[in-house]
């Protein structure tokens, strides 16, 4: 077990190291921040540009800049934004909760909806409720998320004027972004729940539970669901990365003050510290969730450890 944990931790550390290195390197190829900062400033000499670069620490060798960034991560110091000099950790500190709250809302909506629907489909395998759920889930998978968001705005903000079209301000502003991503995530999750339920329902303890005369509800939700919880948690965990990617786009449509909006503004201004911090934080979260899922799985199923 110790070997297994060590191996997984080393793998995760390697992935993060590789990502930060790639990102830090790639970002410096996107263009000169000094030029972006002086755009429209009239006559700018090469000496002025050099001075700006020195002020931003861009004249140091790449490896020095990278190791500074790497060491800073451990004390949550991501440097200062090139625009206005706000500490990046402060920007992340306000944007991260906005993104996480939205991700959590989407996860909750999708799990609450997909479990009963997936169970229904599995129980009615091959009959019309199963087929209806299957078609609806294929439809849900086919929506471009940003268009779905626009259509919700068209319906609920413009036509009916029930919900605010953008921004993050109270419960009502959560509804449309959460439902947009929720529909797409639910479409995937329903199929996962259905598949794992189908396997579980064929096992003998379910037959025993039925033979004992337990109510169908208790058989499905207490006995069967508990036993497919582990594969389902794994799947839900693995989706986290994709979910964050989708939210980044949705944030743009709803002007949501999260990490996606922060990243888009940063790339436009070549604000290196902000962009590399956003990508690092998002990747760290994805790696951490995958690591937790792996460890949980290893604890439960000894076969995984000796893969």
């Amino acid at each position: 077990m110790v070997n297994f944990l060590l191996k997984r931790f080393l793998q995760a550390a390697f992935v993060l190291l590789a990502i930060t290195l790639i990102v830090a390197f790639a970002i410096r190829l996107t263009g000169d921040p000094a030029l972006m900062l002086t755009q429209g400033a009239g006559s700018v000499t090469e000496a002025d540009l050099a001075q700006i670069r020195e002020g931003l620490g861009l004249n140091k060798p790449f490896l020095v800049q990278y190791s500074d960034f790497l060491i800073g991560i451990f004390s949550l110091d991501f440097g200062r934004s090139f625009l206005g000099g706000t500490p990046v950790s402060q920007l992340i500190g306000t944007a991260l909760p906005a993104t996480l709250m939205l991700a959590l809302a989407v996860m909750v909506v999708s799990i609450v909806v997909s479990i009963p629907l997936g169970i229904k489909a599995a129980v009615a395998r091959g009959k019309w409720p199963d087929q209806l759920i299957r078609i609806l889930s294929l439809l849900g998978l086919s929506f471009p998320n940003f268009w779905l968001a626009l259509m919700l705005v068209l319906l609920f903000s413009i036509t009916l004027q029930w919900l605010p079209p953008s921004g993050m301000d109270g419960f009502s502003s959560f509804l449309m972004p959460a439902v947009t991503m929720g529909i797409i995530l639910t479409a995937t999750n329903v199929r996962l729940v259905r598949t794992s339920m189908l396997e579980t329902l064929q096992s003998q303890y379910i037959m025993v539970a039925r033979a004992k005369g337990l109510s169908e509800r208790s058989v499905l939700y207490k006995h069967a669901l508990r036993n497919c919880a582990i594969p389902l948690i794994t799947y839900f965990g693995l989706q986290f990365g994709g979910l964050l990617g989708g939210i980044v786009v949705i944030e743009r449509v709803f002007n949501w003050p999260g990490l996606g909006t922060l990243a888009f503004d940063a790339v436009g201004a070549r604000d290196y510290p902000v962009l590399q911090a956003v990508i690092t934080v998002l990747s760290m979260m994805i790696v951490a969730v995958n690591l937790l899922v792996d460890i949980a799985y290893g604890l439960v199923d000894p076969r995984i450890r000796t893969e």
């Binding site: 992935v15 590789a18 990502i19 990102v23 990617g245 888009f264 790339v267 998002l282």
Partner: peptide, 22 residues
């Protein structure tokens, strides 16, 4: 396989905006 691990942990859209900015 390690390359695959790295790629799976990088959100596609952010990879895309960096790549396209370059």
């Amino acid at each position: 396989m390690r390359f695959a691990d790295v790629q799976l942990a990088m959100p596609f859209i952010l990879l895309a905006i960096t790549f396209i900015a370059i």
